[in-house]
Amino acid sequence: MASAAAQASQKAPGPDASSSAHLGISLAVKGRCQEALPILKKAAPHLADKQLKYQAVMSTARCAMSLDQTETAVEVLLVLNREFPHDADVLYSTTHFYSELASRAAQELAATAPTSHQAEQLEAEAFESQENWDRAIAEYKKILEQEPRLAGIHYRIGRILLSKSPADAEGAKAEFNDEVKIAPDNASAEFMLGEVARQSGQWDEAIVHFSRASKLDEGFQEAYLALGMSLNSAGKFSDAITPLRNYVKMQPGDPAGHYQLATAYARTGQKPEAAREMALQRDAAAKSPRSAQTPK
């Protein structure tokens, strides 16, 4: 904790900090960041005027980025987001700066290790984000040619195969199976294997995978819901109650958990519990209204 004197000093800064800040901002506007940055870094922490501080810190961030002083840039972005939360300019600048940082890191990766699996993966992810599925798969497969047992790559390919239209569920299933051979503790791959099985109505198989996913990652909320849904679908209503109880504790605002738990209670003769969960389902559903237009 800062001393009382230091706090008083920060709350009542001298005219020097303010003048320095104005000077630093002026220099930064003129593009003279080499001169502006040390002045701004020194003055900014002592500014009481909120608006002046905002301008000073934003100028510090811009100069730090332009001078490639990444550490300083990140520090002031954290200050900006802490002291000016929800400010649109701050959020915009933060996005811009982090994006720039990401771009620089990617360029450096490409320059220093262009054939590394990390570089290939970055490229594949870029294609994936553009929904260029075929190119993304091709890039991921290049990685597997280099490192056939690299964890996470088969999982990524499987996800893409499910995202394609029409989805290739069988292909995806094979990829997820390959993934769990390489990384038996990959809860996400187990979950996806469960989801592929659930989507084709193979409840028993889905139950096995969702059960594994929830054991591998005890915080995996969706796995509990999916397990409960599959157990209900398989008519194993009493078995569904425990995972669904876990889920509604984790996600009390999701109507799905309450609906499935109500179903499990109702089918096991626990009518008051079923009615209670159904009431919670109605409340939760009412709080998540649908769009008035055709979903895009």
């Binding site: 849904m229 679908s233 109507p255 958990g257 309450h258 609906y259 499935q260 109500a262 079923a274 389902q281």
Partner: peptide
Amino acid sequence: GLLAGVGVNAFGKP
């Protein structure tokens, strides 16, 4: 409808 399992989808939504 809801308790009978024909009111909403598996995710509890109409």
